[in-house]
């Protein structure tokens, strides 16, 4: 009994300590997949501890997903703990995640404020180095994803951050031009920078100011 209580106490202590260190950046809503209802969530700053405990140790523990399927995803080897450690406590770099009501991290992103715009000379941009929705939110990996559109929410957060940093919402990134991502980028107004880049590798995209402002207005964040 004593051991049980001690274990319970230490678990509660860990949970309370973990809650304390979560820095909430914004209250948001995300789309729950099974009910198609919006539900409350938070954008939080991702610490190395959270990255290790809630991403590296948890994300790829999926039932019924083969090692080959994981490998094919391209990010199963990413070590978020190491990535976040490098950028922690730096102002020009951010690591964020979406924390759901279920206390899971549903997606994560690393981005930088010190990038040059590739479209407009002399202007700055936010560069998104990595975005990943949690594997349990990828409908091609699991039968019933928990949440839909986590990547969209993260990219929109990058636009907000760019806008608030006086970079007019410009966001640049490098991505494989798969049919679904190309459709998404086109729909949001991302521009492919260099059409001569081979399409079997990462290619450069940038969301120009005009498209960023349109997106902010569509979401009702700008009048």
């Amino acid at each position: 009994m004593k051991i049980f209580l001690r274990n319970l106490f230490s678990k509660l202590l860990v949970i309370s300590q973990r809650k304390k260190i979560v820095e909430i950046l914004k209250e948001i809503q995300i789309l729950r997949s099974n009910s198609n209802q919006m539900t409350d969530a938070k954008i939080v700053r991702l610490t190395t501890d959270e990255a290790r405990e809630r991403i590296d140790k948890l994300w790829w523990k999926l039932p019924n997903v083969s090692a080959q399927d994981m490998y094919d995803e391209g990010d199963s080897h990413w070590k978020w703990e190491e990535l976040t450690k490098f950028y922690e406590n730096k102002i020009l770099h951010e690591c964020v995640a979406i924390l759901s009501q279920e206390d899971y991290l549903e997606g994560a992103m690393i981005y930088h404020f010190n990038a040059k715009s590739k479209l407009e000379q002399g202007k700055g941009s936010v560069y998104v180095e990595r975005v990943a929705s949690a594997p349990h939110n990828r409908n091609w990996l699991v039968f019933q994803p928990f949440y839909k559109g986590v990547g969209t929410v993260l990219l929109y957060w990058a636009v907000i951050e760019s806008y608030n940093a006086g970079l007019r919402g410009r966001v640049s990134l490098e991505s494989l031009p798969t049919p679904s991502t190309v459709n998404f980028y086109k729909n949001k107004g991302f521009v492919r920078i260099d059409l001569t880049q081979p399409s079997d590798d990462l290619v450069d995209y940038e969301l120009p100011e005009s498209a960023a402002l349109t997106w902010l207005k569509q979401e009702g964040d700008l009048p």
Binding site: H112, A115, R130, G151, T152
Partner: peptide
């Protein structure tokens, strides 16, 4: 397909030095 939904992953490549602003640095 819903063109507003993005659930995959992006990137993995560090920003090339030529696209990093040289005029600014961390506090």
């Amino acid at each position: 397909e819903n063109k507003d939904i993005f659930d995959g992953l992006i990137g993995g490549r560090k920003l090339s030095k030529k696209y990093i602003r040289e005029d600014i640095s961390e506090l």
